[in-house]
């Protein structure tokens, strides 16, 4: 039955498009239910496609471009989406792409701007910090200067001794408010675990040192090297020694850095 059907030649006419609608449907039914018929149709089709292909003259790519162009111009979007919402889709995709690029660009710009703001903020913080530092420094300087400048000061210069001939220091005796300040800007930074200790000295009838302050060197930067020490009335001289951390009950004279006599 199948062979007879195939041999009848109807499948060729089916492929050539020469059958009526009704006949077409019958062939389709046969093809759907019969693999041999279906395979035969495909072979016939392949043969005529190859044959017609072979008689085609050179077909330039320009023709393809023209058709595409025509489809895009006259039926916007048809090439991309032949079914439904023809106009919308092509434009839609285009719009989506543009939007995407737009968003991308915006995001990029946003990031750039954020980075710039961040950088500016960091810079500003840095400047503010610098300004604060300068103000603080200034305040400290003024404070130090005020102490040194006070007209009621009696200034005692302490000269460098054997262990530190280059060292020097000054003691300011303020007779008005009975305060004593030591300026150790001229002393080298003490070694670790060592501190400077300030002594008020009585020279007569015998040398009698009294500790008036152990200097915390960590404060040196802040106070510009000017330390307030305990008041001591009747000092005749001042000395500064290097002592173990925490200070010593009596001065280590081998470590006497500076010494100066009060002139009255």
């Amino acid at each position: 039955m199948n062979t007879e059907y195939i041999e009848s030649g109807i499948l060729e006419l089916y492929v050539f498009g020469l059958l009526s609608e009704e006949e077409n449907l019958k062939v389709k039914e046969m093809a759907d239910s019969n693999e041999d018929v279906k395979a035969e149709i495909l072979s016939i089709e392949k043969a005529v496609i190859d044959l017609s292909y072979s008689v085609s003259p050179y077909l330039s790519a320009e023709v393809y471009n023209k058709i595409r162009q025509q489809l895009i111009e006259k039926h916007e979007g048809v090439v991309q989406m032949p079914r439904k919402s023809t106009t919308g889709s092509y434009l839609g995709w285009a719009a989506a792409v543009i939007l995407l690029f737009g968003l991308g660009f915006q995001y990029y710009q946003y990031n750039q701007a954020t980075e710039e703001v961040q950088a500016t903020k960091t810079e500003r913080d840095k400047f503010e910090q610098m300004l604060a530092n300068v103000s603080q420094e200034n305040t400290q300087n003024e404070k130090a200067l005020a102490i040194i400048r006070d007209k009621n000061n009696n200034v005692v210069s302490l000269a460098g001794q054997t262990v530190a001939p280059e060292a020097y220091a000054k003691v300011y005796l303020n007779n008005e408010d009975n305060k004593i300040y030591v300026d150790i800007a001229g002393l080298p930074e003490p070694p670790k675990d060592k501190v400077y200790q300030v002594w008020a000295l009585k020279l007569k009838p015998q040398l009698d040192p009294t500790s008036i302050g152990v200097l915390d060197d960590s404060q040196r930067t802040q106070n510009k090297g000017i330390f307030a020490v305990e008041n001591f009335e009747g000092a005749e001289a001042f000395g500064i020694t290097l002592e173990p951390a925490g200070g010593s009950p009596s001065p280590t004279l081998e470590q006497l850095y500076t010494l100066g006599e009060v002139k009255s």
């Binding site: 089916y14 498009g17 059958l19 077409n24 077909l59 023709v63 058709i67 039926h75």
Partner: peptide, 28 residues
């Protein structure tokens, strides 16, 4: 050929397999 492809694409919705092979449809 240009007209044919425009026509095919415009009418592609109207093709269905009950009309025959797709190649047959465009051949026509």
């Amino acid at each position: 050929l240009q007209d044919v492809f425009v026509k095919i694409w415009k009418n592609i919705d109207s093709y269905n397999e009950s009309k025959g092979r797709f190649f047959t449809w465009i051949l026509n």
